[in-house]
Simulated scan of single mutants.
Amino acid sequence: MAEIILHHYPLSLFAEKIRRILAYKKIAWRSVEQPMMAPKPDLTPLTGGYRRIPVLQIGADVYCDTACIARRLEQLQPEPACLPPRQGGLAAIIEDWADHRFMQQVVPPMVVELFPALPPGLLEDRSAMSPALSKEAIFGAAPHALSQARRSLDRLEGQLRDRPFLLGDAFSIADAACFHPVWFMRHSERLFAEVKARPALAAWFARIEGFGPGDVRQMTPAEALAIARAAEPADVAGGETARGEELRPGDAVIIKADDYGPEESRGAIVRLSADEITVRRHDASVGEIALHFPRAGYRVTRQ
């Protein structure tokens, strides 16, 4: 199998979600660091416009969004499982809550804390993705967001009092999704004191942090693009079109996140299911790419 390549940057919350899964599963991976801000000239040839981090690359197959990435890793290495078969629905519900609501509670107060050390222009870059990510909006939202984050930390503390992980004895995608906002708080001693004040939550955090960095080696962006250029999409077979689905394989479509970020990716559908869409696209610098997205959280329209 081709190498597993993660395009990310160190401070990315969502990349930490995937880094924890890779470490837990003991999957060897290659690290390609991408810029925190646009432009991202070594990423867009792979994604066709999608700029969020992380992105997973396996040869000429490119996976966008952590929900899609996590499920591909589960397919590649089912054990140890991150999607418990009897609690898959519950794990996905917690994942969605953490990736959206909990994350939005943590980010504003953390950005305020980190603001003096952030790269110049970062919030201007983010405000182009959504007005809610402007400096004014984030600073205005921070006090209320922190009050809500405290309530979420209390709920996690209560859930963890009698178990090592959120769903029981084993780490799952629910833990990975809840970990990354708490991990982001780790970058402020003042705010991380909120975690330390909750002993079950602090022990859970240390348990997951104890997985370590995993089996990771660095790779340059140029090397990753060369790998894509030399490969052909491989993960394009199978899948069933959901009943009532208006889209069909072969349709030329535009894919865009439904929450923030105006960037679009375009391609022709090669696989379609209730949970995932795969499109094939051509880029002059890397050739044929299969681009994979989850259906949840993305608008798909015909070109």
Rank of each mutant, 00 (worst) to 15 (best):
I254Q: 00
R207Y: 10
V216Q: 14
P249E: 01
G210C: 08
E264A: 07
A257M: 09
G212I: 00
A224E: 12
S273V: 01
R207N: 12
K196H: 14
A200H: 04
A237G: 04
P199L: 08
Y260P: 08
E245H: 00
R281E: 07
G212A: 10
A274R: 02
A197M: 07
E245T: 04
P233H: 00
R248F: 14
E232M: 08
T241H: 03
E246I: 13
P262C: 07
A231Q: 14
D275T: 11
A202N: 11
R248K: 15
I277A: 04
R198L: 02
L272H: 06
G212R: 03
E245Q: 03
D235E: 11
R248A: 14
G238H: 15
R207E: 14
D235N: 10
P262W: 01
D235S: 05
L272V: 01
I254T: 15
A230E: 14
R248I: 03
A268D: 09
I227W: 07
E232S: 14
A226T: 15
I227C: 12
E232A: 13
E263G: 12
P221H: 03
G244V: 05
S265M: 06
S265P: 12
Q218N: 02
L247T: 00
G261Q: 05
D235V: 06
Y260L: 04
G267I: 01
F205R: 10
I254K: 03
R248M: 15
E194T: 00
P199Y: 01
K256W: 03
A234L: 06
R217H: 15
A234N: 10
G214I: 00
A268Q: 14
A197P: 15
I227G: 11
A230M: 07
E209H: 05
E209F: 00
D259M: 02
E209K: 05
A200S: 11
E276Y: 07
L225M: 07
V270E: 02
W204D: 13
M219E: 15
R271A: 08
L247Q: 05
I277R: 02
L201N: 13
P233E: 02
L272W: 09
V270T: 01
V216R: 13
Q218G: 07
E194C: 04
F205V: 12
A224F: 14
D235A: 02
A237E: 13
G239T: 14
A252S: 08
